[in-house]
Each structure stands twice: as structure tokens, then as C-alpha cells.
Simulated scan of single mutants.
Amino acid sequence: MPEFINVSVVKKANVYFGGNVTSRTLKFTDGSMKTLGFMLPGEYTFNTADKEIMEILDGDLEVLLPDSDQWQAIKGGETFNVPANAKFTVKINAPTDYCCSFVK
């Protein structure tokens, strides 16, 4: 889906890691939420509360998912899932545009 219709956008940006990772929160009428974001090259560790589906719109990264010791290469057009209440690390190799869907 190239665009979202009938959403509310939270104006204040989510800014992490000194501005190297930013996103904006989208709220849908059914109560679901997503973030649209951008990551600059670097290595970042995140914690989840909800299950997340990370859709990589453009870019090049590696992800180390919970309970794995193998980095997985991800490129634009691919997705990966992160369980709830988990920690995962990404190595961003090229500027990366993403959409994160939160699954309750």
C-alpha cells in the first residue's frame, strides 16, 4: 500500500540516537498505530512492547533478532517481525526508510 487514508498524524517526531533515527506516529480509526521513519547508517538497539512488523521501504540493513545469533540481511521491499517485549539490533548500512506496524 503506497499511501494511508483517513489517519491522524502526531506532529511531534520520535527522535532516537541523537537524531540518527526519527519517526512520526500514525493513528488509524480502528485504533491501530504505525510509525513512518528514517534511519541513518549506524548500529541501534531497540526494545519492543508490542509485536512489530518492520517493512523496509528503501535501504540496506542487517537485523539481529531475539533468540538468534545470526545477522539477517534486509533490503528495501522486505519485512521482518519482532516479538512483543523483546530487544533487537539493526546495523544500518545505507539510509533506510521504514514503516513499523504495531500488532496488539
Rank of each mutant, 00 (worst) to 15 (best):
P41F: 06
L40K: 15
L40E: 15
D97A: 09
Y44R: 04
K91A: 15
A94N: 12
G59E: 07
T79Q: 09
N47Q: 09
K104G: 07
D69C: 08
T25A: 02
V103D: 08
M1C: 07
V90K: 11
D50E: 08
D60I: 13
A49C: 01
M1Q: 08
F28E: 01
K75H: 10
D30K: 00
P2F: 10
Q72E: 14
F17Q: 07
T45P: 06
D58Q: 15
G42H: 06
V90D: 14
V82S: 02
Y98W: 07
E43Y: 02
P95F: 11
P66F: 07
K75L: 06
V82E: 01
K75I: 06
K75W: 02
I5D: 08
A13E: 12
P66D: 04
G18L: 04
C99N: 09
S23Q: 01
I53G: 08
D97F: 12
I56L: 08
E3R: 08
N47G: 09
A73S: 15
V103M: 13
S32H: 00
T89F: 02
I5T: 12
N81G: 05
Q72T: 14
T25V: 03
P83Y: 01
T35G: 01
T35Y: 03
C99L: 14
V63F: 10
E52W: 03
K104C: 02
D58K: 15
S23L: 04
T22D: 00
K91F: 10
K75S: 11
Q72Y: 09
V15E: 15
D50K: 04
K87P: 08
N6H: 09
K11V: 07
L61K: 14
Y44P: 11
D50G: 01
P2T: 05
